[in-house]
Nucleic acid binder design. Structure first.
Lengths: 191, 191
DNA sequence: TGCATTTGCCTAAAGGTATTAGCAAGCACC
DNA sequence: GGTGCTTGCTAATACCTTTAGGCAAATGCA
């Protein structure tokens, strides 16, 4: 019985890779066991359940995404920062569709509170400083940005934008532009 | 062997109800069979597969949603129409979370082309007529509106907006308002 | 170095879901 | 009343998840 050297971390990483290859939905303990050439039951020494695996992949994805976004916005402000944030977000979703889906996996309250999800919210708020919005407008704006980014990427991944000749890239640029203009307008001419 | 009187339509409707009760993910042929007090295999006389059931529920949801939106925007234009569209969309997602999820089920190209999804696109374009946008801006705007609506509703359903005191309703109103202003600005001062 | 404990992977088994094949009773129509 | 299509059934296969219990490898400590 040679030991393969499994661990929750290795399994999570392999699960994330699997998600990118075949989709987050298809990430299964069985598939993972096959990948390590190990029996399924063996995985239970490292993971409590299939749900824990998915949760761990989700947390990994949230971390990675937050890191990429943080990197992208570093040293930028205003429109530049907005575009960098948006592009980093979308690029991650393109490069890692399975992980991106995982990042949307529903976490229970405490897990979410301890996740990189809070960094996302903080970064969005930081981004909005340049637009100088008071509360509760800032909260509204955080939600709207999250909605647009997630909505766009999600519809794009579902193939929703593939019917026309207008490139998704162009719509993305237009959208980011419109958001910047919208936020500036709210600053200059509140309510 | 008393006949229960199943049919693809009844199964689809029951599946939609089940989705609203326990979530679209949990809609399974087994659960449906239990609900009709029938053996699972019996369902295969009416449905080719679990995938077909999900597809049918998705199509039903798209129809219903399109009907509700069409009803809401009838006789309105501009800002009014935008708000009515948005509210109808969100209300449907609240009342029928499972069906709403179903409406996001990935359909293959031909099925999607024959679905009420095209009505959604048409209605969005009709809505935008008041804002008088040229192509390709109109397409960009269609995508952006879809992204915001879907993104917001989806994040809201995932519990993403429940951490603060700012009501989701207020953010929704603010967002619709901002979108209207943004679209008017694009019309009055293109590019 | 030798031994005890822990850890990691295994076999076995039970329970859930999807799907196919073949059978038998119900119903519709002649 | 017979014929045949329809519809629900039993049986069987194939995955996936999870738990229980066993044995050997790794680890730690004297």
């Amino acid at each position: 019985m040679a030991r393969v050297g499994l661990s929750a971390e290795r399994l999570t990483l392999a699960g994330a890779e699997l998600a990118d290859e075949v989709g987050f939905e298809q990430v299964t303990l069985s598939a993972l066991a096959r990948r390590f050439d190990v029996k399924v039951a063996s995985l239970y020494s490292h993971l409590k359940s299939s749900h824990e695996l998915k949760t761990r992949i989700a947390l990994l994805a949230l971390e990675e995404l937050a890191d990429r976004v943080a990197d992208a916005v570093a040293g930028r402000a205003g429109r530049d920062a907005l575009a960098a944030f948006a592009d980093a977000y979308r690029a991650y979703a393109h490069e890692h569709p399975g992980r991106y889906d995982a990042a949307r996996f529903r976490l229970d309250r405490e897990t979410a509170a301890a996740s990189a999800g809070v960094r996302h919210a903080q970064m969005t708020r930081a981004l909005l400083r340049a637009y100088d919005l008071d509360e509760p407008d800032q909260t509204h704006a955080v939600r709207m940005l999250g909605s647009v980014f997630h909505g766009f990427v999600s519809l794009e991944a579902a193939g929703g934008f593939s019917h026309t000749l207008v490139a998704a890239d162009a719509s993305w640029a237009w959208t980011v532009d419109a958001l910047d203009a919208m936020l500036r307008a709210r600053r200059d001419d509140p309510h």
